[in-house]
């Protein structure tokens, strides 16, 4: 079986968010970059677990991004995975990125795994787009994945619950909590990652449908209104009369 895991790079979860160039660019000064948590903890680690069960499994990683992303790609290779492909571009339009991934993904992969969303862009859209380009099924927000008799047995979030489904391969799946337990790379993995292939190819010519004009930050909160602990019922009154929230 061949699995393609989509890996994106995001600022560390504790990063201070600010912008430069008239609020058109993210200020990456002093920012630590990580593999998007959903891609690492759930998509990649589940792929590695499937390979541990069936060693004939091949795992490829794909990232659409600039050379700056190679540090996190190496880290992903250190966790597991056989080789990585980077499509060299700075473009961040989801339609564009999905087409880049789909050009690689149509090359005989049985499973294409993405994270639930990137924690910076929060699009939740790349997985569905890839699936449509490939004309394959898309299982979103999966919490469990197994392969049995050449089909995928997946548990996914549903309205107010979850459902277990069976779907034929090839298949695109977006992964979230439940899929796997986070791991840290060990020394052997880190050494091995240095010599694993990291192929770079140029982006294919695809249109972009969206562009970011500018960013802004939410207005600072006016400040918390504290209610004395011995009269908590006052909170309820304020929520009803002032905030009109209950």
């Amino acid at each position: 079986m061949k699995i393609l895991v989509c890996i994106s790079r995001t600022p560390d979860t504790t990063s201070k968010i600010s912008f430069v160039d008239q609020n058109t660019k993210f200020n990456s000064d002093g920012v630590q970059w990580i593999i998007n948590p959903y891609d690492e903890w759930y998509a990649l680690v589940r792929a590695i677990e499937l390979k541990e069960k069936d060693p004939s499994t091949i795992i490829h990683l794909i990232n659409v991004g600039s050379i700056d992303n190679e540090a996190i790609i190496r880290k992903a290779l250190a966790l597991g995975g056989d080789e990585a492909i980077r499509i060299n571009t700075n473009n961040d339009d989801a339609y564009f990125i999905s087409h880049q991934i789909a050009t690689i993904a149509k090359d005989g992969y049985d499973l294409i795994l993405t994270g639930k969303e990137t924690i910076d862009h929060n699009g939740s859209s790349i997985g569905g787009m890839i699936a449509e380009i490939l004309d394959s099924n898309f299982i979103s927000l999966a919490t469990k994945l197994d392969i049995e008799n050449n089909q995928a047995i997946v548990t996914r979030e549903s309205e107010g619950g979850e459902e277990k489904i069976a779907a034929p391969l090839p298949l695109v799946i977006s992964c979230q909590k439940g899929m796997a337990e986070a791991r840290i790379p060990n020394m052997r993995g880190i050494m091995a990652a240095r010599t694993k292939p990291l192929k770079v190819s140029e982006a294919s010519n695809t249109e972009c449908l969206t562009t970011i004009n500018a960013f802004d930050l939410p207005p600072a909160k006016a400040g918390v209104k504290l209610i004395p602990a011995d009269t908590p019922e006052l909170l309820v009154k304020l929520l009803r009369e002032e905030a009109k929230a209950i």
């Binding site: 910076d120 449908l209 004009n213 500018a214 960013f215 939410p218």
Partner: peptide, 16 residues
């Protein structure tokens, strides 16, 4: 739209 997990907003142009 909301970005950076609610820590910022982005104004996004659609050209299609």
């Amino acid at each position: 739209r909301s970005v950076f997990s609610g820590k910022a907003f982005a104004d996004v142009k659609i050209s299609s």
